[in-house]
């Protein structure tokens, strides 16, 4: 059985999304949480490329993917900066330590 290029990309996208979401649910380190988020977004970038290909508008799809990279990098930077501050002032990078606000 041979897969077409679109199908391969599609499977990759779904895998990346799934891995990233599983990561959000499972990992305990704040840095890894940000990494999981990044994995999901990377999946979506591929998704834009794929959608451009399917819709017959490859250039638009790819340019959107690049824009997603730009915006998402900012989010990642802020997330990591917050993680650094949390490590500094709360003394831990563990998600479970991050539960002072509840109820």
């Amino acid at each position: 059985m041979t897969l077409s290029i679109s199908e391969i990309i599609l499977i990759t996208v779904i895998l990346l999304l799934g891995i990233g979401f599983y990561g959000l649910l499972a990992v305990r380190n704040l840095i890894k949480v940000i990494v999981s988020l990044q994995i999901m977004v990377k999946g979506m970038m591929l998704g834009f490329v794929l959608a451009g290909r399917l819709a017959g508008n490859v250039s638009l799809g790819q340019s959107l993917a690049i824009l997603v990279i730009v915006v998402d990098t900012i989010v990642a930077i802020i997330g990591l900066a917050l993680a650094v501050q949390i490590r500094r002032y709360a003394g831990s990078l563990d998600v479970k330590a991050l539960t002072t606000l509840k109820r």
Binding site: F21, L24, L25, A26, V33, V95, K96, L98, T99, T100, L101, K102, R103
Partner: peptide, 9 residues
């Protein structure tokens, strides 16, 4: 409202 991030996700 556990405050746990994974739970929120």
């Amino acid at each position: 409202q556990t405050g746990l991030l994974s739970w929120n996700i």
